[in-house]
């Protein structure tokens, strides 16, 4: 049996496969340093997500990571999941409306309203 079938990507040294994963990771560390949650609380939240993880090869690890972070912040009444949903959709609309080669700004969202301090 090929060991790679059991331990996929065992020779893969990458730690992040996409930039958003690095940002999600860094935000978690920054929030912990701010004292928003303890590291044990974080580990518990992440463990819960990973228990339900479907990917045997760990490829959805950072998807679980982000979900764990969103849920922990929601549990602490810092961000509501629905706010993240809405703003993520706004970012996607803004991206579509932004000509290629120019920076994507939230203001480019055709449905943009000034959200400052509304969260």
């Amino acid at each position: 049996m090929n060991p790679r079938d059991l331990l996929p990507q065992a020779d893969d040294d990458r730690v992040f496969s996409e930039p958003w994963q690095a940002q999600a990771f860094a935000m978690t560390l920054a929030l912990h340093q701010k004292g928003v949650f303890s590291w044990s609380e974080w580990a518990e939240s992440l463990s819960k997500e990973l228990e339900n993880s479907g990917a045997e090869d760990g490829s959805d690890y950072y998807t679980c990571w982000l979900a764990a972070l969103e849920k922990l912040l929601a549990a602490k009444s810092i961000t509501a999941l629905s706010d993240v949903d809405a703003l993520a959709a706004a970012w996607q609309r803004a991206a579509h409306a932004t000509p290629h080669g120019t920076p994507i700004l939230l203001e480019n969202d055709p449905q943009h309203v000034d959200r400052h301090n509304t969260f």
């Binding site: 958003w20 998807t63 972070l69 706010d83 993240v84 970012w91 991206a95 579509h96 290629h100």
Partner: peptide, 20 residues
């Protein structure tokens, strides 16, 4: 046009809120 995949958009959204 630009395209943001759903995960990248979620991270941006979270970062926007937390920055505010």
């Amino acid at each position: 046009d630009n395209d943001l995949d759903p995960m990248a958009a979620r991270v941006r959204a979270l970062e926007t809120i937390l920055t505010q």
